[in-house]
Simulated assay, not measured.
Amino acid sequence: MRVGVVTFPGSLDDGDARRAVTLAGGEAVALWHADADLHGVDAVVLPGGFSYGDYLRCGAIARFAPVMTEVVRAAGGGMPVLGICNGFQVLCESHLLPGALVRNDHQKFLCKDQRLRVESSATAWTSTFEAGQEITIPLKNGEGGFVADTATLDRLEGEGRVVFRYLDGNPNGSLRDIAGISNERGNVVGLMPHPEHAVEELFGPGLDGLGLFTSVLTAGLEALA
């Protein structure tokens, strides 16, 4: 299965995301922000970093990149899309996911290993987890507070679209301790912590992040069966 990883000017975790795809058993394909097509990939990862320098708002310029026109179209057709940190911000700015990510409530950049609870395994990116499973992956952000109006938050909760939730305290002021969400179909997932930094022993807190990448490969193989 071919998984494309988009590089925007200012991306810094794209190489890590490609390595995570490879370690999971997939074929990682480098996509450039100016690409007018997705080169036949089966899924897409929007990585962390500071796309276009985070000018205006995080992800606000990246949403207009040529490649995002194709990502939005493909996501609408059911292609799995994962947004990590800055990629989550891009998904919200592109209206593939609701809500927004704002500056941390303590006004400081943070970097730490973060415990999460997997709230939903009913997505293309979490099918190898179990609902209620607790995992630890790195978190690093300055604008990681997830916000939305009450009606949207209630809808996300009621439809089972809260995918990850922070444990051991809220690190950035995200409403209802939300660390990640999905679209209605479950093929688009955004999360603020970094699973690509927890895919190898001795290079992070463990292997808990690998499950997101093996999940999408499993979903792809099942779709082909």
Rank of each mutant, 00 (worst) to 15 (best):
P80E: 06
G83M: 11
L96N: 01
R73W: 06
F88T: 04
S94V: 05
G78I: 09
L82S: 02
A100E: 12
M79C: 09
A100S: 15
L96Y: 00
E93N: 13
V81A: 11
C85A: 00
L82H: 01
C85K: 05
A100T: 15
G76Q: 00
G78Y: 04
F88Y: 14
V72K: 15
P98C: 14
G87H: 03
L101F: 07
C85W: 02
G87V: 09
G78K: 05
G87C: 07
V102F: 12
L96R: 02
G87F: 09
L101H: 02
V102M: 13
M79Y: 04
M79H: 05
A100D: 14
G78R: 01
A74M: 09
S94H: 08
H95N: 15
C92T: 15
R73V: 05
L82I: 07
F88K: 10
V90A: 10
G77A: 13
A74C: 13
P98Y: 12
V72I: 15
M79S: 07
M79G: 07
A100G: 12
P80H: 08
A100Y: 11
V81H: 07
V90Q: 06
V72W: 00
E93R: 09
R73F: 06
Q89F: 12
P98K: 11
G76A: 09
R73D: 13
V90C: 10
G78V: 10
A74V: 12
L97F: 07
C92V: 15
L97P: 14
G77W: 01
C92N: 05
A74G: 09
E93Q: 15
L91C: 10
L101K: 03
V81I: 14
I84N: 03
G99N: 13
G83A: 11
G87T: 03
H95G: 06
P80F: 10
C92F: 00
C92G: 12
F88C: 08
V102L: 15
V72S: 14
V81W: 04
S94M: 04
V90S: 07
G99Y: 02
V90H: 03
L97Q: 13
C85I: 04
G83W: 08
M79D: 00
H95P: 01
F88E: 03
G87W: 02
N86K: 00
C85F: 04
L101E: 00
N86G: 03
Q89L: 07
G87A: 11
E93L: 11
V72E: 07
M79K: 10
R73P: 02
V90T: 13
G78C: 06
M79I: 11
Q89E: 09
L96F: 07
C92R: 04
A74D: 03
G99W: 02
A74W: 03
F88I: 10
F88A: 12
L91V: 08
G99L: 10
L82N: 05
G99P: 13
L97I: 10
V72L: 10
V90P: 04
M79A: 08
L96A: 09
A100K: 15
L101P: 14
L82K: 01
N86S: 05
E93P: 11
Q89R: 08
G83V: 10
P98R: 12
I84H: 01
G83F: 07
H95V: 12
S94Y: 03
M79Q: 07
L82D: 01
V90E: 11
A75L: 12
A74N: 00
G77C: 04
L82T: 04
V72M: 14
P80V: 11
P80M: 11
V81G: 12
S94R: 08
P98G: 11
A100C: 15
G76M: 10
F88W: 01
C85S: 03
